[in-house]
Simulated assay, not measured.
Amino acid sequence: MKVGMIGCGVISRQYLESFDRLPDVQLVAVADLDRARAEAAAEGREGVRVLSVDELIADAEVDTVLNLTIPAAHAEVDLRAIAAGKNVYSEKPFAVTTEEGARVLEAAAAAGVLTGSAPDTVLGTGTQTARAVIDDGVIGTPIAATATMVTPGHERWHPQPDFYYVPGGGPLLDMGPYYIHALVTLLGPVEAVIGAASRLRTERTIGSGPREGETIPVTTDTHVTGVLVHESGVLSTLVMSFDAVATTAHPIEIHGTAGTLAVPDPNRFDGDVRLHPLGGESWETLPVTGGYEQAGRGIGLQDMAVRGADLRASGELGQHVLEVMNGVLEAAASGTLIEITSTVERPAAVPLTAADGAVVAG
């Protein structure tokens, strides 16, 4: 798979670190509205050309566009790439509005190209080991889950945090994809949601970089809670906050009739999976039994290159999660339960797979 990367901001560094470890993926071109950032991304990478966005989308060598633009541009860039006959793989969220995401999927289906969506962290050993434990019946029948993300705000460390505090940002659309992609991977799709949300401040102060001390407006909710009703009947409770300071909660907990599972941070690829069995006296750390080992951002592209239309970090999954998130925000605004119209198959489990693509177990 020959990839052209559009958007060379902060997150691109993590993708660049992964490319050399992906046996079936080759980065061939980069583009950014700030050409200097694109040149920095290509520096020292043999065969990687610096192009304009228009040139990259039209380039015959590029078969897949990796879209790392800001959320508000995800759908627009994807649609342009699809119109040029390219596969697309987008950073999260898949789009800003559910309607935009649907247009991307419709265009891709008509053009016969693939769509992928971050986060691919769910393909790592953390979430996939938890998936194997659940599928093996270790915790019995799943009943409920909690997903908790608490931080005082990205403006404390990000030099250009504006997009986090406008529609398409906020804690739910920014960080929610990690947690909800994991919940759907572990427990299946969602059929309805309820929610509540608040906004603590109307502006934030940038804490680092050349704009340190500058204030930016906040036009989206910064603390969101919700309940996801999975098709299986499991109830997942979300707390996503850019207002609170800290928490002692596990990032994700899955409660079953025979035990509770502590799932590691879904913003990471690895981490300990811990089990407290019914009748047990303490938590026990479980061995790694699933997922891509030593994975980094971009493993979803490798999965796309190998599996084609059966890719796990699919656009369909990204779209379902986008509708769930926007449903929670709609429920918070209306005070009503919102039914989710889309559904998606649980992505196939990832057997324990070495960095070179060799299946270790499963």
Rank of each mutant, 00 (worst) to 15 (best):
G126A: 03
R103Q: 12
G9D: 10
G298T: 06
A102S: 12
D120G: 04
A196W: 13
A72G: 12
G256N: 02
V234I: 02
V25A: 08
R201C: 14
A58F: 06
E323N: 06
R35V: 14
M304Y: 02
L123V: 09
E191V: 15
A95S: 08
L27A: 04
V10L: 13
I254V: 15
A258D: 14
S52L: 05
G9S: 01
L186A: 06
A58Q: 12
S52E: 04
Q302F: 05
V190I: 13
E55A: 12
V360Y: 04
F19K: 02
P351T: 00
P217M: 07
S208F: 13
D32N: 10
T219A: 03
L352H: 09
V288M: 00
E55H: 09
L317C: 08
G362I: 08
P23G: 09
G335P: 03
V50L: 09
N87G: 11
E61P: 09
T285A: 13
L33D: 14
I134W: 07
M1A: 11
V138D: 02
T121G: 01
V50H: 10
T336V: 11
L311Y: 07
T289R: 02
G176I: 06
M304F: 00
G124W: 09
P161V: 01
Q160S: 14
H158D: 08
S342K: 08
S342H: 11
V138M: 07
A358P: 04
V224Y: 05
T205W: 00
A349I: 13
K86F: 05
Y164C: 11
P277E: 15
L238D: 01
C8L: 05
V113L: 03
V3C: 08
V218Y: 05
R35C: 08
W157Y: 15
G213N: 09
L186N: 00
Y15M: 11
R268M: 13
V77P: 01
L187D: 03
E281Q: 13
V234C: 06
L33F: 00
A196Y: 14
A197P: 05
I6W: 07
T148S: 11
L200I: 12
N87D: 15
L200H: 14
R204H: 10
L187T: 00
V234T: 06
H250Q: 14
G318C: 03
T64P: 00
V360H: 12
V218D: 07
D136Y: 00
P277Q: 14
I139W: 02
D24W: 12
G7E: 04
A244R: 15
P171Y: 09
G168C: 07
A109I: 02
E61V: 11
E253N: 14
L123W: 06
A130H: 02
D272G: 13
T115L: 09
G327D: 07
I340Q: 00
T247M: 09
I216W: 04
V218A: 00
A313M: 11
G298V: 01
V227T: 13
A107D: 03
G4Q: 10
R274E: 13
I6T: 05
H181E: 11
A95W: 02
L114T: 05
Q26F: 02
A354F: 06
L51N: 06
T343I: 06
E323S: 05
A355R: 15
C8T: 11
R49V: 14
I254Y: 10
E76A: 15
G176A: 07
F19Y: 03
R211P: 10
V239R: 14
R35P: 09
T121M: 03
A102W: 12
Y15C: 10
